[in-house]
């Protein structure tokens, strides 16, 4: 058992989140996938903090959480207002900005 396992786990979680962003159409689920990606990064940060013996990694992970919270608030608000005008939460329906 080494820290590499944590890192690989984080990489795989990150990838799953990425694929989720790509294949899911419900904007809320897409958001959840982004949260998953952020969490995997947090795991990496915590792991490296432990590896280097400094607390900074944890601090940054904390900041990531705060920013993620802010992002969720704003993002969900955007989804709400889009839903109000278009009656849809699908990211595919928001495709007016194109060629």
């Amino acid at each position: 058992m080494t820290l590499t396992y944590y890192l690989v786990l984080a990489a795989v979680l990150f990838t799953i989140g990425t694929v989720g962003v790509l294949v899911r159409r419900n904007a809320i689920v897409v958001f959840m996938c982004i949260e998953l990606m952020l969490n995997s990064v947090n795991l990496t940060l915590v792991t490296f903090a432990r590896s280097t013996g400094t607390i900074d990694g944890q601090i940054i992970a904390l900041f990531v959480m705060v920013v993620a919270a802010a992002e969720v608030v704003v993002g969900l608000a955007i989804i709400m207002s889009i839903y109000r005008t278009r009656s849809s939460a699908s990211v595919d329906d928001v495709n007016l900005l194109k060629y």
């Binding site: 159409r25 595919d92 060629y99």
Partner: peptide, 20 residues
């Protein structure tokens, strides 16, 4: 450019695929 413009489908997921 118009052919390249076709790549701008308006689907965010397509763009994300390109980024990936």
């Amino acid at each position: 450019s118009s052919r390249l413009g076709r790549a701008q489908t308006g689907f965010v997921r397509s763009y994300a695929l390109g980024m990936l």
